[in-house]
């Protein structure tokens, strides 16, 4: 005799997998984005000891 509540069991497992999978994927994607943003913003910053257009050293020396 087939399980009469198969749909309830399947839905419970599907929703759990979707929520946990969503959390894992969103955390991994966010980590990748943050690393890329940090690399990008770091490239825009002047390196220590460099001078700006007015001839001032940017590290405050």
């Amino acid at each position: 005799m087939p399980e009469p509540h198969f749909g309830f069991i399947l839905s419970a497992f599907a929703i759990t997998i979707a929520v946990v999978g969503g959390m894992v994927i969103s955390l991994l994607l966010e980590h990748r984005r943050l690393k890329a943003d940090l690399t990008q913003i770091s490239a825009k910053l002047p390196a220590s000891g460099e001078q700006d257009q007015g001839g001032r050293k940017l590290d405050g020396e």
């Binding site: 002047p46 390196a47 460099e50 940017l58 590290d59």
Partner: peptide, 18 residues
């Protein structure tokens, strides 16, 4: 750290290494 870097960029401070 990204927020702090954005502030440094806005203030023209030198960068730490990636």
């Amino acid at each position: 750290r990204l927020r702090r870097m954005a502030l440094r960029l806005a203030m023209g401070e030198p960068k730490p290494s990636v």
